[in-house]
Design a protein around this nucleic acid. Structure first.
Length: 555
RNA sequence: GGCCCGUUGGUCAAGGGGUUAAGACACCGCCCUUUCACGGCGGAGACAGGAGUUCGAUUCUCCUACGGGUCACCA
């Protein structure tokens, strides 16, 4: 068998490529970073949809880089034009920025930033071709002219023979094409892809250490995978190896769906004599359904989209902390010990990452979110709430921004101190929580304690109209309620009532409840005295009058 | 089907030959309390199954089951 002239083939295929791999090495030198600094990246394809699951590798990458004084960059994998959606890059950048993931380098809003670009793969065509040419010249890649039909046929035969699928060994019919044959096909204008010439065998096992999964026993790759598609654009595999080499990535963090092609990637790094990056493969985020787990699906699950969390109004910080907690479960211990430190001070550890897929736990997210919101001051809550409402609940936004001071006072109820209220998990909860403070949103449901009859209630309310004084502090305020209770046959002392309820219609709590229901139109509220103070005497009196009227009209 | 990965309470998980097998969320009960929320105290609840190695396996090995991934000119 005559050895084909690989150099001649390389020239034939890539006559315009003049640069050499050495030129590229010089253009993209190793980064000047301190020892141990990690260079990581996020490499999404611009489909316009960001999966919630993407947040996990994104945060892992971001933490690893920024915690070590390294670099975190964004690379756009736009090698598949069919799936690309206009404006997708902006959506990616904006959504991730919202959740606290920021890039130092890469594809940013207006073009690119950094010395290792371009950061959009379609603009890197020449770079891939330089390496592709070298691979051909070294006899490690060859053109394949097989049509789709031919490939289908190969597969059908493999299925019949129960052989492994793929383009390899004897099935790789274009592998040994002579220079003349290639020339002929080229002259005939036949399209071709460039394939890697694998020298691997599935008989061989390779050991590889993944930073998350640990020691892996993988099967060597024997498939002649496609490096360049017929349009000259690289496949993911080739782009990954070339880009992460020249962008000097140290840690590749990606989903574990890539595990099966990892042997090929390693093989490519070795074939090019490049240093392999470290790999971290993480399991996908799961969802529980009917007692079993399954991967969260973009089609079936609303919560799969990152935008879902923005719409529901989870504070970005809460989502960030939730993700951090799922990634490193010791985060919550750290959070308890450091309640006021920013989450970025937490020492993120790769060793703590679980090799198996976590289930999305909305309860946990809500709990974290409640704590995050509870720690904010009223002004911050106001700013974030109104910002959210502006986008997702404009009617509510207009109502609460009419009198900012009033709203901030409302949002300040039960806030601060050692045991702050935790009744809101998302911005969307606030509408219901505070609606009764605003006349346009006030939809009272008058449910009074049933141990008091209608006349008692009317009497209590009418009398309260005369004694309410907005100047009263909490003690005085409650003192008046007690007096009122006693006057209407209710025990002013809860303890005493519990010991012996006989001789009373009810207790002071019932009277408070009557006032609460009349003023707020509901049975569950924060501290009533504070509510009244914030509402102001006019509104309190008006609400009580309205309640009395409603009672009288009920007959 | 081939190959690969995974499996500790309902959920997230610590632990990695000898432990009463942490903690958090959720759940339940009690307490605090003018309702709710908060907070405090307590409760129930787990090493997928089977072999093997060992004096001893949740921990190491193998098999089975289950779950997941992948086998494209998609990433």
């Amino acid at each position: 068998m005559d050895a084909i002239d690989h150099k001649a083939l390389a020239e034939l295929l890539f006559p315009d490529v003049k640069m050499t791999p050495e030129d590229l090495e010089a253009k993209y030198p190793p980064r000047d970073l301190p020892e141990g600094a990690a260079v990581t990246r996020l490499a999404p394809s611009p489909t316009g949809f960001i999966h919630f699951g993407n947040l996990f590798p994104a945060i892992t990458s971001e933490r690893l880089a920024h915690q070590s004084g390294g670099v975190f960059y964004l690379r756009i994998e736009d090698t598949d034009a069919k799936r690309e959606v206009p404006g997708a890059v902006e959506i990616i950048i904006n959504s991730l920025a919202y959740f606290g993931v920021r890039f130092d380098e890469g594809a940013v809003m207006d073009g690119d930033r950094g010395n290792y670009g371009p950061y959009r793969q379609r603009q890197r065509r020449e770079i891939y071709h330089v390496i592709a040419k070298k691979l051909v010249a070294d006899g490690l890649a060859y053109p394949c002219f097989c049509t789709e039909e031919q490939l289908d046929d190969i597969r059908a035969r493999q299925e019949k023979e129960k052989a492994n699928f793929g383009y390899y060994g004897e099935w790789a019919v274009c592998r040994e094409l002579s220079l003349d044959e290639v020339k002929k096909k080229l002259d005939a204008g036949m399209p071709y892809v460039l394939r890697f010439r694998s020298n691997g065998s599935i008989e061989n096992k390779i050991k590889h250490i993944d930073l998350i999964k640990g020691e892996l026993m993988l099967t060597e790759n024997d498939i002649d995978h496609v490096l360049l598609k017929s349009d000259g654009i690289p496949t993911y595999h080739f782009a990954h190896v070339v880009d992460d080499h020249f962008m000097r990535t140290t840690h590749v963090i990606r989903g574990d769906e890539w595990l099966s092609t990892l042997p090929f990637h390693l093989q490519l790094f070795d074939a090019l004599n490049w240093k392999r990056p470290k790999y971290l493969h993480n399991a996908p985020l799961m969802k529980s359904e009917g007692g079993s787990k399954r991967k969260i699906s973009k089609r079936k699950d609303r919560e799969a989209a990152l935008s879902y969390y923005m719409e529901a109004g989870y504070p970005a910080e809460a989502v960030f902390e939730y993700a951090l907690n799922t990634l490193n479960s010791n985060f919550e211990q750290w959070r308890m010990a450091n309640p006021d430190s920013p989450a970025t001070e937490f020492k993120f550890s790769v060793k703590k990452m679980s090799p198996s897929g976590a289930l999305l736990d909305i309860d946990k997210l809500r709990d974290i979110s409640k704590n995050v919101i509870a720690k904010m001051d009223a002004r911050t809550v106001y700013d974030l709430l109104t910002e959210w409402a502006k986008a997702y609940d404009p009617e509510f936004h207009d109502i609460i921004t009419k009198d900012p001071e009033y709203t901030i006072n409302i949002l300040g109820i039960g806030r601060g101190g050692k045991k702050p209220r935790k009744d809101a998990a998302v911005w969307g909860d606030f509408r219901d929580l505070i609606s009764f403070f605003y006349d346009p949103l006030f939809k009272p449901e008058y449910e009074y304690p049933d141990n008091l009859n209608k006349d008692d209630i009317i009497a209590i309310l009418s009398e309260y109209q005369g004694i309410y004084d907005p100047a009263d502090d909490n003690q005085v305020w409650f003192g008046r309620v007690r007096e009122l209770a006693e006057k209407h046959g209710c025990c002013p002392d809860m303890k005493k009532y519990k010991e012996d309820p006989s001789g009373y219609k009810g207790h002071v709590g019932d009277v408070s409840m009557v006032l609460r229901v009349a003023v707020c139109g509901r049975t569950q509220t924060p501290d009533l005295c504070e509510i009244m103070r914030i509402m102001g005497a006019e509104m309190v009196h008006r609400r009580i009058a309205q309640a009395i009227e409603n009672l009288k009209a009920a007959d």
